[in-house]
Simulated assay, not measured.
Amino acid sequence: MPLSSEEDAYANNYIYFNDSLGTLSEDTATQCEQYGYFNVAWELKDDMLSNGHAVLFTGEAYLTLYQKQSIKMLLQKVENIPDEVVFVTNTRKNHLKAMSDPVWIPLRTEARTLLDLLQMETQRVRRLLNMDP
């Protein structure tokens, strides 16, 4: 059965958000590798915010109130990452240093918790998009 355009938009937004959330949950070295040591903090912050807000905008009918509130709370914390952590000279050393900043530690933990909270929704969306065998 084909997805409605609304559900398709949500499912695609959700998968991108879930990927960003997965990256946020990783350690410094993995995050830097996943972004190819290129604007790592800026890219991760931007991906989290743009994908997260897209999910909230299109996911009204698919997420529980608690899930939406949890996403909003994490996005607020990501939004508050200081500019000096996000805007660094584009070198491997600077990206590793920026992503090692203590501001990321609680965000990684929250991302793991949110991934667990969204696990069933992730499975549902992956099935909708024929991503699971």
Rank of each mutant, 00 (worst) to 15 (best):
M1V: 10
P2Q: 14
L3V: 09
L3W: 12
A9V: 13
A9H: 13
F17P: 01
D19Y: 14
D19S: 12
S20Y: 10
G22S: 13
G22M: 04
T23Q: 05
L24G: 01
L24A: 03
D27W: 05
D27G: 09
T28W: 11
Y35S: 01
G36S: 07
Y37H: 15
A41N: 03
W42D: 02
K45L: 06
K45M: 07
K45H: 11
D46R: 13
D46T: 12
D47F: 05
L49N: 03
L49M: 12
S50Q: 06
N51M: 07
G52W: 06
H53W: 11
V55Q: 12
G59C: 12
G59H: 13
Y62A: 08
L65S: 12
Q67P: 10
K68D: 03
K77G: 01
K77R: 15
K77V: 00
V78C: 02
N80I: 00
I81E: 02
P82F: 10
D83R: 08
D83V: 03
V86R: 02
V86D: 01
V86G: 00
V86F: 01
F87E: 12
T89W: 06
N90I: 06
T91R: 08
T91L: 07
T91Y: 07
N94E: 15
N94Q: 12
N94P: 02
A98C: 06
D101R: 10
P102A: 06
W104I: 02
P106T: 03
P106H: 09
P106Y: 08
L107Y: 11
L107M: 12
T109I: 13
A111P: 05
A111I: 03
L114C: 03
L115H: 02
Q119V: 09
M120P: 01
E121I: 09
Q123E: 14
R126Y: 06
L128H: 13
L129P: 04
M131D: 05
P133R: 03
